[in-house]
Design a protein around this nucleic acid. Structure first.
Lengths: 346, 346
DNA sequence: CTGAAAGCGCTAACAG
DNA sequence: CTGTTAGCGCTTTCAG
């Protein structure tokens, strides 16, 4: 930078001001231009480590997610990345594998790297780390999952109406023996969707006892398989399943296939998330579409808002705003009328 | 850190030495323990910005990939992340969308963030940016794709034998009119696989003219659709297709379906990569399995090697080592005997 | 509008 | 084995 300054014939402080968009107003336009030209010529790139050291801001955001390999998260990550880079920020992605120790470690590493804030997609209903983090006042936005205590702003899909759409669709198709193979109940989405399911069934006048809910241990294909086995063992009369998410739905699909049950002729199935390639499954999966990219983008926006405001004033704790995105059902080929079911049997 | 030092009753330089694993040997064991205890007590986390500024090393690696949303890359990213974090490094992922300007920008941003090196999965056969980077001697490892000039170490799958397995499988099934819907020809994997295809057909004694190659414009479903349309328009007698990758295969699948051709009864199809959920397609895709996680891990290892050696000595330019991983064919349900084909027609 | 000077938190060379 | 000192490259008062 001294070199740039020398070439432009100014002091390095002036060069610094000229090169920083937020201070370039405080410098003569012609001088600024000269400095920029000099920087260009020398192929100068600003040393962010030095800037961070001085300003105590790294323009870096930590993103905690369970597993990038889960098809949900790549679009989320891209959404985050897009709004962050537009503002000169960079995302540091960290996989936690739903492991508390690993998460803690990643969190500390990210803190060491002076991240300005976090986007957390790994929230459990009870979450020690997040409670501590709340006390230490690090800016955090929750994505998708939230804690039981409303500690932080949250960006998520509107699971309630999502499930409502799914159930209504099955009811419209004449189903009454509908079961919910739910997600894990220690995660907010798991219980929200289960509650929404019970509620939707209740509205339809179906007794609480008939609104079957079998929780899977995790949002995975394997857990979905196990839970579906259990469901079908105990309640073979089930004609339709609402799955906690698409991976669980995939597990259900496997079990149906293994048992010689056809989907949708024998059992209808609705997923949740509309993950990439859900339309390529066998059969193409009817599922609730969640705009993951937008979720990521909005979470990033909310975090930036927080960072901006904490910059201007040490202002009071902002209300934990919640942004719920509208969801819609994508009807494909995994659902059919119950009527079709009787005739279909060979 | 001064606080830690004070609490431990030593100078901050000593504290620094005690806290850094690579220098903690140069300090009294008891003192070191005292310092670590103090650090623990104060919840001290080292400021990496300051360290970077001083040491000129950020323990950060830039990863350039086309698009995290492409199912190939999440496992690659995880592989990279796993070996990097084990050594205290962090990966900075950047999506380029195969856009040269965007890639340049991302590259510069990463340089500004003082990355110690790059893993690049976006190499084109002619690649201006990479040639410049080579001159500037930034440590780089190429992943999957390489430039025509062997500028950097490369980690990739052994595409040649992968394609050979695919072709041999189809030949064994009695196919002779086999076509290759190839990947884009400005990318190394695109031409390598196309060449390997021609070679494998040649070995089988099938004339060069019959070894049909139709290149897709990109490794996408849409491009795969277009290329397959073209192929089937001009060569309806084709009985089997080797696709440049699984996304192209998916495009082919769509076109077959649209034309009322059954896979595998009418046309057999082999993909490449064995991407996540390829086994859930309709039909489950026979494809060449590529160990993406291992590719990422190995690339990270190679880069770390380079970083270690450039640390010890300013040593001469290392030979551009190439690591090719063995690939194998996963036979599923998208391939069948030609014989079955005749009988299958209604 | 620009220059001078201090200092962010850490490490490394040098003494002792 | 430990303390002293200087300085990484930048931003930001404070003067002028």
């Amino acid at each position: 930078m001294s070199d740039v300054a020398r070439l432009a014939g100014v002091h390095k402080a002036t060069a610094s001001r000229a090169l920083n968009p937020s201070t370039s107003g405080r410098v003569n336009a012609a001088t600024a231009r000269r400095v920029r030209a000099a920087a260009e010529e020398l192929g100068f790139t600003l040393n962010t480590a030095a800037r961070s050291l001085r300003t105590n801001r790294s323009f870096t955001v930590g993103v905690l997610l369970p597993d990038l390999t889960n098809p949900l998260f790549p679009p989320v990550a891209r959404g985050i990345e897009e709004v962050l880079t537009a503002r000169g920020y960079t995302a540091l992605l960290a996989n936690t594998d739903n492991d508390e120790a690993k998460e803690r470690h990643q969190f500390d590493v990210l803190l060491g790297r002076q991240v300005d804030g976090f986007i957390v997609a790994t929230a459990q209903r009870e979450h020690a780390l997040l409670e501590e983090a709340h006390k230490s006042r690090v800016p955090i936005v929750l994505l998708n999952r939230c804690t039981d205590q409303p500690l932080f702003p949250l960006v998520a899909g509107d699971d309630n109406t999502g499930i409502l759409f799914a159930v209504r669709h099955l009811l419209d198709r004449g189903h009454r023996s509908i079961a919910h193979v739910a997600g894990p109940q220690d995660v907010s989405t798991g219980i929200t969707r289960a509650r929404a399911f019970r509620h939707a069934m209740e509205i339809a006048g179906i007794s609480h006892e008939q609104a079957l809910v079998v929780p899977a241990q995790a949002y995975t294909v394997a857990a979905g398989e196990r839970a579906t086995e259990e469901l079908l063992d105990h309640h073979p009369a089930t004609t339709a399943i609402v799955a906690g998410n698409d991976l669980i739905a995939l597990g259900a699909l496997h079990v149906l296939r293994a048992r010689g049950l056809r989907c949708p002729q024998d059992i209808s199935l609705v997923g949740f998330n509309d993950m990439q390639f859900a339309d390529e499954f066998q059969p193409p999966l009817t599922t609730v579409h969640v705009p993951h990219l937008e979720l990521g983008a909005e979470a990033a926006r909310l975090l930036l808002e927080q960072l901006d405001s904490s910059e201007e004033s040490a202002g009071g704790a902002p209300v934990a705003k919640t942004v719920l995105f509208p969801l819609h059902l994508v009807v494909r080929e995994s659902t059919a009328d119950v009527a079709d079911r009787e005739g279909g049997l060979g």
